[in-house]
Design a protein around this nucleic acid. Sequence first.
DNA 1: TTGTAGGCGTTATCAA
DNA 2: TTGATAACGCCTACAA
Lengths: 342, 342
Amino acid sequence: MVVIKKTPTIQDVARHASVSAATVSRVLSSPERVSETTRERVHAAVRDTGYTMNQAARSLRLKAARTILLAAPNIGNPFYSTIVDAVIREAAVRGYSVLVASRIGDDPNRWLRDYLLSNRADGLLLFDGSLDTGALHGLWDDGVSLPLVAAYDEIPDPQINSVITDNRLAASRAIRYLRELGHSKIGHIIGPSRNQSTNERLVGFREGMHEAGLQVRPEWLFQGSYNMESGIAAAEWFLAADELPTAVFCGNDEMAIGLIHRLRREKIDCPLDISVIGFDDIAVARYFDPPLTTMRQPREDIGKMATRSLIDIIEGTVPENEPIHVVLTSDLVVRESTRRIG
Amino acid sequence: MVVIKKTPTIQDVARHASVSAATVSRVLSSPERVSETTRERVHAAVRDTGYTMNQAARSLRLKAARTILLAAPNIGNPFYSTIVDAVIREAAVRGYSVLVASRIGDDPNRWLRDYLLSNRADGLLLFDGSLDTGALHGLWDDGVSLPLVAAYDEIPDPQINSVITDNRLAASRAIRYLRELGHSKIGHIIGPSRNQSTNERLVGFREGMHEAGLQVRPEWLFQGSYNMESGIAAAEWFLAADELPTAVFCGNDEMAIGLIHRLRREKIDCPLDISVIGFDDIAVARYFDPPLTTMRQPREDIGKMATRSLIDIIEGTVPENEPIHVVLTSDLVVRESTRRIG
DNA sequence: TTGTAGGCGTTATCAA
DNA sequence: TTGATAACGCCTACAA
């Protein structure tokens, strides 16, 4: 089924247009260096033969694949899918393809070699802060310097280019908002601690609490894993405490949804009995019942900016000694899962 | 930043191990054809030099990229992300990379050429039934036969390999279930008509209605586009009718969510006043309020089976004259958005 | 402005 | 079992 009549090569086109292969190549990559007439002849020949450039040969010759590698911990998560979409779109604009890898297996070092040093991809867009930076430096130490942009999840290494959001600020902003609503008994569902962004949100939470003169109570702190099941588990953890918080700041919307769902089973209503604020503003947030108050992450922008930066780096249109650090701002989106009390 | 000290080639390894490049190549691809001792020497040399195969060169030589192209209309949709995840995982198992393209632009023909005839990808996994099959046949006519598996969305061409679900049956099953619950005033939110699966669901809906001796009322039929906003619009359409249906079968869960959300604003409760049944069973379905009754699509299986089939075809381990047609079954998942009446 | 020639890194063929 | 060689399709000095 794979067999093809005969894929035309640049030679075939050359023959067809009665020019040399070099000329065809020039017409395709730097048309201005070819005379009007031959250019047209070559274009005609390209159409006639149905020629398509062989990318493998081109990559080999140019030592560039015009492809970027996107690595995320879990593409299945709807949060990432929007980002992926933005990445693909932006990459296409710049003429790049996107190779997607969902999980950086057990041996990131080997994995990175396989993809990046093998001429399959020219750069890496990393959406996984849990990756050991040691592995990245490992490549560095080998004398290799690879175009890399860490996005969304922070990597605690100022040398690494990054496009992130102001997690800490956003978290403290969320707490301040709850405080304004009159809440003082505030809980927090944390994400997995291997993610730096999680930790930033936790720090922001603590800061917000501190600023408000509020105590962080351990029984109102729960560590989840950014999925709805974690929200359920968190609800059960809170339920086991002597007293329920009146408001909970969740590390992401999914955990908020799980939390609200589980509490409702106990006739604890959101926002009547408890206010819940999420993080991300995933698509379903505004249509959930109650519509979720949340800290919106500019996901399209993250994807777009990260892609743009990476390609700039790959193409060397950006000074390489000063790392790129973009920090996008999150916005508080007030809906109906939070409510003024007392 | 791209510059690398010196990427070792197979030649470097050969020198290091005092063998020929050919031998190194053999050790790497058919170790059994090399003597124990040299094999070990070569392996050591590979480790020492930190050699990684240049995939571009390999692809050029082998005329195979060990990469598949995944094309979906909208990766941003959470429904697809799970499938994509499954595809990537399964492909990895078989040693394939996955190139993802979100939108098959205006000119699918050109697009397909660019990716598939250019040696970037060995086969296409198509999740978009709206693609004009003429374009596909265009390639065929050129004497080109490309490994292609259409998944999830049906393509009305028995020659094209496909992995789909029993949309028609599932739809009529949904109607039968509503009927069993005592409903006779049943509406339907259709997906975009360019998708064949949409049409199959519509046919199933009509069949189910017919079997039950029920009339399909046009004012209870609404065409959406598989997103939550469509559900909102559908609600408004139904609201404008003289009478509301007592049950609505939705083409997917997102439209069901939008519908329920909008009706609630009018104090029309699901499931008290209206039963709603979705399609797909996306992650949030079970935690939505009310938890959605829905026809679950085996998404991981779709992704896995489709990938497996495609790679089998690429590698020629499957007879090529008889197209593969896998039909997976959808399951009715009863939750709380549907309710007995009368 | 155009053509010639060499090489990118790999693997398959053939001979030793 | 191993090695020399050619070829995959393209681009880029360099020469004309």
